[in-house]
């Protein structure tokens, strides 16, 4: 039974990791927490639903189109809304929560009922190991997450623009004096954070009936996963997300599906008591 649990946990864990990455990217760049991340994820699901169901867009183009649109939306929202909220973290958080509520209600107005998501990844199962079923959707989730993490890693480590984003995250003022346009870098950061979260939205779609409130719990858990891993560490966030997914799946099986969230959060809190800065986190001096 355990391998089966691990597969399920790994799948949801990857989703937490991707949405958590959205938190991490913005946090590293701005030292701010964008609590609308869960709703961005959900909006990605519904954008995917619309494109796949009504326009018949197949899986791979969908996985390019949805993040591309979300990227633009993120960069635009940064310019129109978030940019005015940086002066105080409290204001930013309130603004982000408000934006999340607005996104959720906007989607609810368009899609009032829970809906089935098209089986864009096919509905078959693989049996790599005898007795263990590997749903196609889970395979896609894991593979796409791996590809994304690799792409982000390559971008941040080896490309000029990726380095510039890291430089802005470390010291925006000095990065500016090197010729980096800080506002553009921040717009790019928000765009990226929206793009990754929206991909998670598409990946998870086929597993459930989708509804506009699906981002609430995922957002909270993804944030927790990011904190667990160390919110300023990309690798940490991935590990935190997967760990949370696996813990949750195990708890759901051995204890009860109804109480899996309680159990997951209890373990999370325990871990944070032991390691307050997360598994791979560092103490970050407060930015002025």
């Amino acid at each position: 039974m355990l391998p089966q649990l691990l597969i399920g946990g790994l799948g949801t864990g990857c989703i937490y990791a991707l949405v958590g990455l959205g938190f991490t990217l913005v946090y590293r760049g701005m030292a701010m927490v964008n609590f609308a991340q869960g709703q961005v994820f959900m909006a990605g699901t519904f954008l995917g639903l619309y494109l796949a169901r009504d326009l018949g867009v197949p899986a791979i183009p969908l996985l390019i189109l949805v993040p591309a649109i979300s990227f633009v939306a993120g960069a635009l929202l940064e310019k129109l809304v978030f940019r005015r909220l940086y002066h105080s973290h409290e204001v930013f958080v309130v603004g982000a929560i408000g934006l999340g509520v607005m996104i959720e209600n906007f989607v609810r107005a368009l899609f009032p009922e829970p809906l089935p998501f098209p089986k864009i990844f096919g509905s078959g199962v693989y049996r790599f190991i005898p007795g263990v079923l590997f749903q196609k959707t889970y395979l896609w989730i894991v593979v796409i997450t791996l590809i994304l993490v690799l792409m982000l890693h390559i971008m941040f480590t080896y490309t000029r623009r990726g380095r510039a984003l890291r430089a802005v995250a470390a010291d925006a003022e000095i990065a500016g004096t090197m010729g980096v346009s800080v506002p553009r870098a921040i717009g790019l950061t928000f765009g990226l954070s929206f793009a990754v979260a929206s991909i998670a939205g598409v990946l998870i779609g086929p597993l459930y009936f989708v509804s506009p409130d699906m981002g609430d719990m995922v957002g909270l858990k993804a944030f927790s996963a990011a904190v667990l891993g160390g919110i300023n560490s990309i690798v940490g966030t991935i590990i935190g997300g997967i760990l949370l997914g696996v813990i949750e799946a195990t708890a759901a099986f051995y204890i009860s599906t109804d109480y899996k969230d309680v159990f997951a959060f209890a373990i999370l809190m325990l871990m944070l008591v032991v390691r307050p800065h997360g598994l791979l986190g560092r103490v970050v001096p407060v930015k002025v």
Binding site: A167, D171, E173, G176, V182
Partner: peptide, 28 residues
């Protein structure tokens, strides 16, 4: 002009306190 535009115009700064990017290598 913003600092990045001034950099593009040809100014360079060695800031007080050095402020190198600590998480990056010398080459980076």
């Amino acid at each position: 002009l913003s600092s990045d535009r001034r950099a593009a115009a040809g100014m360079a700064l060695v800031p007080e306190g050095r402020r190198v990017f600590g998480d990056m290598t010398v080459t980076e």
